[in-house]
């Protein structure tokens, strides 16, 4: 475990907590894409299959549980909570996210490190996570005024993977034979998808104006 990875995990945890805070305290999911949340729940469900079979560390197990429970409870909140669901704008959240699932699965069947069920599911979760933010980014472009918590949520979600990239660079130089092209490339693609969001987020922060993405 290095500082970049710890910072990445903490940033990821912070993004989840910001989202839960928003939904649980102000009972609103305005501007949040249910589809991205569903994709993330699927990402964690397919990536943490080894939760009960392989024990790496208490930290690892604890964080996996937190991400699993939080992602599924966020989906539940937006879908079933009597107050929160009213603030979900399904007419705007129209990205056909099922079209992302199949290509990622097929790609995982073709490009993976080992042709086993666990490995293919893990690789699928990696590809899916790379594109899971797309429905949310599309929704942000449609939502005129993005509230602060939503902006912070997306920023932290993008930042965590950038920190993971630093972690991979660090591990590449410190651990012999540490080479994981699949992880590195999908992590890079994922981070690049946030590039324009980061730009506008930084501009809004620098000029102290409301965050707005061009349509």
């Amino acid at each position: 475990m290095n500082i970049f990875r710890l910072a990445g995990d903490m940033t990821h945890l912070a993004s989840v907590l910001v989202l839960l805070l928003k939904i649980h305290t102000i009972k609103s999911c305005a501007g949040i894409s249910l589809k991205t949340q569903e994709l993330y729940a699927l990402v964690f469900a397919t990536r943490y299959l080894d939760l009960f079979t392989d024990y790496i560390s208490l930290y690892n197990t604890l964080m996996k549980l937190i991400f699993l429970v939080s992602s599924f409870s966020i989906v539940w909140y937006i879908r079933h909570h009597k107050i929160v669901r009213r603030s979900y704008d399904k007419d705007q959240d129209t990205f056909r996210h099922y079209f992302l699932v199949l290509p990622c699965f097929l790609l995982a069947l073709v490009i993976n490190e080992k042709f086993t069920v666990k490995e293919i599911m893990w690789t699928f979760s990696l590809y899916l996570e790379a594109v899971a933010i797309l429905p949310q980014l599309v929704l942000l472009q449609r939502t005129r005024n993005i509230d602060n918590l939503t902006g912070q949520y997306v920023f932290l979600l993008g930042a965590y993977r950038s920190l993971y990239i630093l972690n991979w660079i660090y591990r590449y130089f410190t651990e012999p034979h540490y080479v994981h092209w699949i992880t590195w490339i999908s992590g890079l693609v994922q981070t690049l998808l946030y590039a324009d969001f980061f730009y506008y987020y930084f501009q809004s922060w620098k000029n102290n104006v409301k965050l707005e993405l061009p349509a």
Binding site: R5, D50, N60, K114, Y164
Partner: peptide, 10 residues
Amino acid sequence: SGYVSRHDEL
């Protein structure tokens, strides 16, 4: 190397 050692990250 085994699955566990290759997937020690979140």
